[in-house]
Simulated scan of single mutants.
Amino acid sequence: MRRSVKKIKLIFVMILMVFTLVASNTINHYQLGANSPVSQECLIVGTGDCRGVSTTPSLPTPMPEIIVTEQDRFLAAIAPHLSTIPQVGSYEYILLRAYGAAFINQNPAVQLPATVLLQDEPETLAFQETLTMMKVDGTNDCYLQASAATALNEARSQQNIPLKSGYGSGDCTRSFATNLRFWYKYANRNTLEQVRAGKETAILGVVAPPGTSQHLWGLAIDLRVSNAQQRQALYEHGWFQTVAKDVPHWTYLGVKLEDLPQLGLKQQVINGISYWLTPL
């Protein structure tokens, strides 16, 4: 009887060992098979060429962390509007850095030029003829693109927000000739070449070089903003200050304040004023 019990115990232990080995082999087979089809063949006796094939399970390669910078987000946002992104260090790149915030505009009704530089009056007129314009309420001859004017009119219906001049067309959409006239009011003959060479940038916050003003696009206006309530009303309707140190200059971006960082713009506070600038 004792021999029978011992024999049964021995058989049970052997069965348990075989089960453990089979289970272990199944796990290794799955791990190897998932990583290499050749290794899977090597697990089947007599099949496949197993020379040089490692039977050690390999861990999956970790995915690299993708870092998305402000510049990446900005360039992705403006890509649908610009035919080409200017080369770093070029005159067009300098202009994009100073005035390119408007290109993040997501409103399909807004028209943007295909370049940051309009070469002359005919090119400027050709672009402006594609725009749908609307008069700003309570002004004599101030016109903006319709979406921008509508948003501004709504903001001004909530708060008293006067134009810089009080009424004039020069605060709104300008001609190439007007842009040129303003430029030579503040710059001399050598200034443009200095800007082109990247040696002069401070003037870009005072006046835009010929053919580069956001006012040519019908998306900018000069305002007299003196309190937080006026500023908040403009923010709520997609208007922001986007040209560093140009205090009266406001640009229609057509997006919410909280969306600006997602589109790559960075906030910079200068003398208590929040500007939303390009990350270039």
Rank of each mutant, 00 (worst) to 15 (best):
Arg2Gly: 07
Lys9Arg: 14
Phe12His: 06
Met14Ala: 14
Leu16Ser: 09
Val18His: 04
Leu21Asp: 11
His29Asn: 09
Ala34Asn: 15
Ala34Glu: 14
Asn35Tyr: 07
Cys42Tyr: 01
Leu43His: 15
Ile44Phe: 04
Ile44Gly: 01
Gly46Ser: 08
Asp49Ser: 09
Arg51Lys: 12
Val53Tyr: 07
Thr61Phe: 14
Thr61Tyr: 13
Met63Leu: 14
Pro64Asp: 04
Pro64Tyr: 05
Glu65Tyr: 10
Ile67Arg: 13
Glu70Pro: 14
Asp72Pro: 05
Phe74Leu: 03
Leu75Gly: 06
Ile78Ala: 07
Val88Tyr: 13
Arg97Pro: 08
Arg97Cys: 15
Ala109Arg: 06
Glu121Asn: 13
Pro122Gly: 10
Leu125Trp: 03
Glu129Pro: 01
Thr132Asp: 14
Gly138Glu: 11
Thr139Lys: 01
Cys142Val: 07
Leu144Ala: 02
Gln145Leu: 08
Gln145Tyr: 00
Ala149Lys: 00
Lys164Leu: 13
Tyr167Lys: 11
Gly170Gln: 11
Asp171Val: 10
Thr173Cys: 01
Arg174Cys: 09
Asn179Met: 02
Tyr184Pro: 08
Lys185Tyr: 13
Asn188Glu: 12
Thr191Leu: 00
Glu193Pro: 01
Glu193Arg: 11
Arg196Asn: 10
Gly198Gln: 13
Gly198Val: 09
Gly198Arg: 08
Pro210His: 00
Thr212His: 00
Ser213Gln: 00
Ala220Pro: 06
Ile221Cys: 02
Gln230Arg: 04
Arg231Asp: 07
Tyr235Gln: 02
Glu236Asn: 15
Phe240Val: 01
Gln241Tyr: 02
Thr242Trp: 05
Asp246Gln: 14
Gly254Ala: 02
Glu258Ile: 04
Pro261Glu: 07
Leu263Gly: 08
Gly264His: 06
Gln267Thr: 12
Val269Ser: 07
Asn271Thr: 07
Asn271Arg: 10
Tyr275Pro: 01
Leu277Thr: 01
Pro279Tyr: 04
Pro279His: 04
